[in-house]
């Protein structure tokens, strides 16, 4: 069961404020979802199964060359010096 505290913890590590309505409604909904995926527990833990579907050979990787982007990447919230603003610690 997902308690209200569990939900608050999940919301905290996910950095999401929940509305009153969501706090009310979510525990039951998430419970049902978790109950639904609990069926995965029936599967054996079999280490012989290769989990990786894709491989890439070293030779295929990008070579180390500079290619500067000409695009202006950031258009929001820039200070005169070109810094972005973000939340301050403390």
């Amino acid at each position: 069961m997902i308690s209200k505290e569990d939900l608050e913890h999940l919301a905290q590590i996910s950095r999401i404020n929940l509305t009153e309505y969501e706090l009310e409604k979510f525990p039951k909904q998430l419970d049902k979802t978790i109950e639904y995926i609990d069926i995965l527990g029936e599967l054996a833990s079999d280490d012989s199964v290769n989990l990786d579907l894709q491989e890439l050979r070293f030779e295929e990787l990008r070579t180390d060359e500079i290619r500067m982007s000409n695009n202006k990447q950031l258009n929001k919230n820039i200070t005169e010096d070109g810094f972005l603003r973000g939340p301050k610690m403390k």
Binding site: I2, L7, L10, S14, R15, I16, L18, T19, I34
Partner: peptide, 18 residues
């Protein structure tokens, strides 16, 4: 991030959980 919709929030929470 409160501005995410309900379904997105639910999946993020489930994702963090698993």
């Amino acid at each position: 991030r409160e501005n995410f919709g309900e379904e997105v929030k639910r999946r993020i929470l489930i994702g963090s959980y698993v």
